[in-house]
């Protein structure tokens, strides 16, 4: 157990406490590039989320139609329109979630984060591009099996990466106490 003076000598503002908010067993993998399986599961979770959303909206719409229409006809199978809506929704959802924090629901559950090469967040434009690429050519994820840096085709082209980031988004103490706002911003990166 270090004394305060020992602690203070090795202290880098923000970093240690932020790091210690991780579960101990996850510290060794924090920030490393995530492998294929984790990412695949995350993608499946996202797809399931969007599918659930689309199907329940469609079911709701049909239920409404059933209530309002006296002569209810069973719906024709709306495979293609639903698929298009699903793709669109998927694109919007990934764009939104990657641009604001690098995490979609699947990423959150699997402890992953999409980031640029030096850890910065994807901007809205880059997130939209990556999202579109992922929606159109989801098989690009397969490249992460072979890439030595676990990069999917999208990552290689757009210069992004997916890392393990289990950190719950606790505010850093340094940010809470610091008088200079720009200092804590600098420490974050």
């Amino acid at each position: 157990m270090p004394t305060f003076s020992q602690f203070n000598k090795t202290f880098v503002p923000g970093s240690q406490v932020h790091f210690s908010s991780l579960p101990e067993r996850a510290r060794s993998i924090q920030g490393l590039s995530a492998g294929f399986t984790s990412r695949l599961i995350a993608v499946f979770i996202d797809i399931a989320l969007v599918a659930l959303l689309v199907l329940s909206a469609w079911g709701g719409w049909e239920a409404l139609r059933y209530i309002l229409n006296v002569f209810y006809t069973l719906p024709a199978l709306l495979g293609v329109p639903l698929l298009i809506i699903g793709y669109l929704l998927m694109w919007l959802y990934w764009t939104w979630s990657w641009s604001i924090g690098g995490r979609s629901l699947g990423n959150i559950l699997m402890g992953l984060r999409v980031q640029r090469r030096h850890g910065e967040n994807l901007g809205l434009g880059l997130a939209a591009l990556r999202s579109a690429f992922s929606v159109v050519f989801a098989l690009g994820l397969l490249w992460s099996i072979f890439s030595s840096k676990n990069k999917s085709l999208q990552d290689v082209v757009l210069g992004t990466e997916v890392v393990f980031d289990w950190a719950p988004l606790l505010p850093k103490v340094d940010m809470t106490f610091s008088m200079e706002g720009d200092k804590s911003e600098k420490d974050e990166n």
Partner: peptide, 19 residues
């Protein structure tokens, strides 16, 4: 102050308590 606060949090392992 901030360093001391960080030290205390580190020592009592507040994050794990929260978790």
């Amino acid at each position: 102050m901030a360093e001391i606060a960080d030290y205390v949090i580190e020592e009592i392992d507040l994050p794990s308590l929260v978790r």
